[in-house]
Design a protein around this nucleic acid. Structure first.
Lengths: 194, 194
DNA sequence: TTTTATTGATTGATGGATCAATCAAAAATA
DNA sequence: TATTTTTGATTGATCCATCAATCAATAAAA
């Protein structure tokens, strides 16, 4: 019953389904069948469009990063001052849809996969660089360059650290608490360095 | 019977082999055969002693945590002042053998597994609590209680964050840099809070 | 009719788990 | 001391389930 032009629709449905399946399951150890079922199609069709599970996984994280990037760019554009740009980056990192247990699980799973898969690692390195570069460029207008690099590193580490600790659900922190901790680090460091 | 008392020897060899295999491979997706080969025994023997792969995995991370705890306790005992105890915790976290790519890979893999396996999650929660409690108890003697809790949370997040970013190998930081970043956070926060 | 969409059936490989069968040291016995 | 018994240690072979991947066949536009 092929209505034409299904390809982009199916691709998106499959990528979304993969993300949800990975998040629910907490690892990349989800089967093509599970993903396909969630997308309402057969496993064979997933193979037809993506060729292999690996490529579907790569497309999936790529879509996650793309959405994040879109959000960050929009938030940066809306911010008036360098200090506001810093806050924007922090806020986006902890925004609700990025902070659900499923999304955190998915991020963690991708980090692990990056230990083995070079394409996956490359994608995550892009994210890490982009985060740091966003931070550094705003920081450089607020403090000496050496301090900017150091503070960016510390901020990025704190963001990622709050993330994975959230994944453990040992002591769940609210979004506001995470933002406050990071903002506090930024403000204190800037106050010291300027 | 053969040489008696092989059990503890084999168990240790298998746990060590599992840790190495996981680290090398970058995920828990290692086969019992690979682990057993590395330990110089058959896969069947691994099953004989551990019952299942799951249980071997749990024992493996338990051993990792045990060693870490031993190191921390020793370092805490050697420290004279509360401030020195804080530094001891930081130093141990980044000490060389905990900071090798293989060990970082293994930690990441365990974090992911914890999303699915309740026993695994429990073990990691113990680690997270212990780290925080070590930090809080030292901090409480140096600043008000509310500040202590907050600073401990921030410090723990920074430690864990530096860890996983190291795993990505995007911008490798030296051990000293990581220690310096964390120490700087601690000192600055304490200066502000006291 | 040609092309696109779609799937059920099938396969080849992998890996965890099980088991029957050895091996060899220690303990008991003669 | 010599012999027998016992039992932990160990493994190769095998079973069984899972899963990614492939393929042949079908349905519906164009």
């Amino acid at each position: 019953m092929p209505k034409l032009g299904m390809e982009p629709i199916r691709r998106k449905a499959l990528v979304d389904a993969a993300l949800r399946a990975i998040g629910d399951h907490g690892s990349l150890d989800v089967t093509m069948s599970q993903i396909a079922r969630q997308a309402g199609v057969s496993a064979a069709l997933a193979h037809h469009y993506f060729g292999s599970k690996d490529r579907l996984m790569v497309e999936t994280i790529r879509s996650l990063l793309r959405q994040l990037h879109i959000d960050v760019v929009a938030a940066l554009k809306a911010a008036e001052t360098p200090r506001a740009r810093l806050s924007a980056v922090v806020r986006i990192s902890f925004q609700a849809d990025q902070f659900s247990p499923e999304t955190i699980s998915a991020w963690l799973a991708f980090y692990v996969e990056a230990q083995r898969s070079e394409p996956m690692r490359r994608l995550l390195v892009v994210y890490a660089r982009r985060l740091r570069s966003d931070l550094v460029s705003a920081l450089k207008t607020l403090c000496p360059d050496e301090d900017a690099a150091r503070i960016a590193e510390g901020t990025a580490a704190m963001i990622d650290g709050l993330y994975i600790r959230q994944g453990l659900r040992a002591s769940p922190l609210s979004i506001e608490t995470c933002v406050a901790l990071t903002e506090d680090y930024l403000s204190t460091q800037l106050g010291k360095a300027s």
